[in-house]
Design a protein around this nucleic acid. Sequence first.
DNA 1: TTTTGTTATTGGAACGATCCAATAACCTGC
DNA 2: GCAGGTTATTGGATCGTTCCAATAACAAAA
Lengths: 337, 337
Amino acid sequence: MKRRPTITDVAARAGVSKSTVSLVLQGSPLVRSETAKTVRAAMREMGYVYNRAAATLRGSSVGLVGLVINDLRNPFFTEFAVSFQMAMAAAGYATVISNADEDAELQEKLVASMIEHGVDAVVISPAYGDPSSVFDPLARAGIPTLQVLRRMDPRTELFPFASFDYAAGSAEATRHLIASGARRIAFVGGLDERSITRERMEGYLAALEEAGLSPLRVEGPTSRAFGRSAVARLKDDHPECDAVFCFNDLVALGLIAGLQRDGVAVGRDIRVVGFDDIEEAALAWPDLSSVACDIAGFARDTAGALRDWLDTGTRPPAERRAPVGLVVRASSGGLGQ
Amino acid sequence: MKRRPTITDVAARAGVSKSTVSLVLQGSPLVRSETAKTVRAAMREMGYVYNRAAATLRGSSVGLVGLVINDLRNPFFTEFAVSFQMAMAAAGYATVISNADEDAELQEKLVASMIEHGVDAVVISPAYGDPSSVFDPLARAGIPTLQVLRRMDPRTELFPFASFDYAAGSAEATRHLIASGARRIAFVGGLDERSITRERMEGYLAALEEAGLSPLRVEGPTSRAFGRSAVARLKDDHPECDAVFCFNDLVALGLIAGLQRDGVAVGRDIRVVGFDDIEEAALAWPDLSSVACDIAGFARDTAGALRDWLDTGTRPPAERRAPVGLVVRASSGGLGQ
DNA sequence: TTTTGTTATTGGAACGATCCAATAACCTGC
DNA sequence: GCAGGTTATTGGATCGTTCCAATAACAAAA
């Protein structure tokens, strides 16, 4: 198997110097259009492919960005990753996507590998754990790094943070439940020591406070399996409960499955609201009311901010909060079933 | 911002030549262990990071593989992508993941970009469309390429293909429905002109034939939304239907949501079986019977085969079929509800 | 002492692009 | 026909590694 042709080979074939070929490659207006045509023809004939590694060595950007996600199997993050990747691809960047699987040690390895590959930037939704082992190397290497959806490193001046306005969303959802007549509203799912749980509970607590109601809490992971198992916990600990605001849609969907198994009519006997508005929420039965986060839009905005940072050097603001909005469906009794 | 230290800088600091540093980098037994220690200390102190681009230029592998998926938002493919990426990461490879979004033109661009980046290999679940625009460049560049889950290019000697034994799975599922008493079994979802639909229908048709039953068909896309809408089509076209075998779990879950909305008791009034056994199948209500594909295992095997190909040069067999197995749950009436 | 081996270390030429400074080619106008 | 200016083209150094061939250091054998 013979080696790939280089610009020197192309140059020989086209009867010009390699410098000219290089100029053609970057679309310089300096070369005569006729010459350029000849060169391009030679490239096509020889099946020339650009060697980015060589260019990188001379200082041009690799056109590669890293994306590290704490849990890529969660559809919320999947949607973010896919939309982000596509937005970057449209701008000519390839994306190395990695699942850190909530494992700080693995995450450290993944980021180190990305730095070796010379990625132009890193976007990370970090796993829980000591942030310095992953952020310090990025800072040393001078790689623009964005924290999204979860802030682990407090140095947001250095590593700008972007997420959704969870507190506003949970307040809106809780007010909606209260307005629909619910009085004993539980917050199900999420681990209390995590900041995202605190953010999502913040608005819930504030809205209850406003209405003079007291909170009910079932703490736990954020998975569908937990949601399903939480039904029993709810019945035991808070049998009087008439509405549930879930940490996320996965918990809500699991919970609904569990309630249905027990013959409880969701939307009538008990109202349920989720968070994230994943695609499935609108398609489940009953339709799941949920706080919608426009993840695809958020991902595009993130990609846009990152490209600005790379192209013009303008670092994004230290903190950005994307708005969210409640979508009322049958599970909260919002529609006539 | 000063530039990153190179092996020459490290060499100066450690008082050796850059060649020695290079040897240390690849763990050569030629360097005295004491010297190696000094060099490693210097690296640590200076925050040296390996520059893969430079090494690549000299011919070493990039340690980067490309993964192109026709529809990355589908949880089936997501699970494959995530498991594959993690298996490759464990072997020291980074993975560029791309969603072709069933767009052949986009796919062509993505693959071209991967070739430019010099990926060591490509794993692709191709979008529908002319395969040559994406496979020919890969062949020219001599990049080991694996087709998974969908065969678009017939040259499987060149681009080995791996998937699941769909025909066996659909036969098993259909026999199970017949054994449970179903007689009017519909096959819902999937577009007839696609080979994967033909494979998944093959076993269904064979099992019906065996039992002297005739097929019922509702053709369509493979999404949750279609599944939900298919309920009406089913009622109109095949009101006598007593069981449904769905193209995949998404269709099945959508269908179940639609049936529940209409007050039909799934598992009693009508039996439903899905395909893929995505995580949600076990957690939905009622639990969804499904033909289980061990995607994570399949992804690991694929990663293993690819690493063999890269490390030892042994090309995988032209076609590999991973076994599948039916998991019986409540939706097909398999459990006492 | 010289020879012969080992074992460690090193200079320097690649790899394939970029880009600066230098040169060539071609217009103008006088 | 030539100065001056513009437009096109080109040699060659450079980026940070790898790896070969050459050399150095030192011990054991002759």
